[in-house]
Design a protein around this nucleic acid. Sequence first.
DNA 1: GTCTATAGGTAGATAGAC
DNA 2: GTCTATCTACCTATAGAC
Lengths: 189, 189
Amino acid sequence: MRTRMNREDRRAAILDTAIAVIGERGFHGFSIRDLAMRCAMTDAGLLHHFGSKTDLLLAVLDHRDAQDEHAIAALFPRDAPARDRGEVLRVFAAVVARNAERPELVRLYAMLRVEALAPDHPAHAYFVTRDRLARRRFAEILGPLSDSPDRLARQVIAAMDGLELQWLQEDRDFDLMASWNETADRLIA
Amino acid sequence: MRTRMNREDRRAAILDTAIAVIGERGFHGFSIRDLAMRCAMTDAGLLHHFGSKTDLLLAVLDHRDAQDEHAIAALFPRDAPARDRGEVLRVFAAVVARNAERPELVRLYAMLRVEALAPDHPAHAYFVTRDRLARRRFAEILGPLSDSPDRLARQVIAAMDGLELQWLQEDRDFDLMASWNETADRLIA
DNA sequence: GTCTATAGGTAGATAGAC
DNA sequence: GTCTATCTACCTATAGAC
C-alpha cells in the first residue's frame, strides 16, 4: 500500500519532515531513528540517502536555500531597488508575510540560530554567512532612507526575529503582520 | 587538593555550570555526564543533588528567579512608576545593561525559549508564564506613554530579544547598548 | 556527599541480505 | 532502496560501598 518513491521524491520528503523534527528538538536533540519513524522507514534506510546526521542537516539548509533562491531574488531585485519609504516598507512586509506562511521554517531557523552560536555546531558557519548576507541586503534597501543603514538593518532584523518568535509562542494566533507594520512604521523614518 | 564544599555551595556551583552547558547545547542536547565532568564529579554524584535531568533544569530556573527577584523589584517598582518618557527609557536601558553583563544567562534563555515552544518541553509552562508576566510589566511601564501599551510592549520585547541575539552572535563585540538606545528612541514615541 | 558498578535503554553508523 | 542485524558508544537513573 506504500507509495513507491523515486530517489528525489524520497529525499525531499525526508528533508521536509526533518525541518519539523529539528525545529522541535534541535540538531543535538533529535534522533535519526525518530525522524526515520516519522518517514515510515528505518534509520538505516534513511542514512542510505544522507550518510550522516551532519550531512542531513546541511542538506536541509541547502535544500531550503535552493527552494528560496527565486523568491529572494524577487523580493530583493538589485536591478530595480526600492525607491521610496512606501516601497521599502512593502518589501519588508512581503518578507514577513512570506515567513508567516511557513511557521515550521521560522521555527527551524530560530532553533538552529541559537544552537549554532556554538562554534563547533555543524551549522555555525552557515549562520555566520547567512546572517551577514541578510544584514547587507537589508542595509542596501535601507540605504536611501537612512544615514546609517547598517545600524538600522540590525534593528529591523532584530524586531522581525523577535516578533516572529512571539508569534510562534502564541500558537500563531496573534497578528504578526499588524504588529510588524506598526514596528516598521516607527523604526523606519 | 579539591576544595570541599557544603551542600549549598556545591548545588550553586552545579547550577552555575549548568547555565553554560544548557545554554550551549540545549536541554535535550546536553548530558548529565558532561555537566558532571565540568564540575569535576561523576554523574551519580551530581544526581544525588538533583534527582533527575528535568529537576535540574527546573532548579536552574528557580535558582535564577530567586537571585533576580530583588533586581527585578528594583527595576520595576510598582509603588514608584516611571513618570515620563526619559524615565521609561532609563528603565529599559537598565534592563538591557543588566543583561549585557550576563551573556551566559541571555544565551540560556534564548536557547530554552525556542526549545520550550514544544508543549512537552519541561520548561514550556515556565516560559508561557514568564513571558506573559514580562509583557504585563512592560505594558504597565508603557501605559502613560501609549494608547496601546500591550502592543507596544510586544514590540519593545521583540526588539530587545532580537538585538541581544545578534550581540551573542557577534561574540559580544557590537555595541548592544547603543543599538538598543537607538531602537528605543524610535520605537517609543 | 561522592564514589563504583551496573541496569536498561537509546544513540549514530556499518555490513550484508533481499 | 530498504530492510534486519549488529557494533560500539553513550545515555539516565539506581543500588550500595565508603
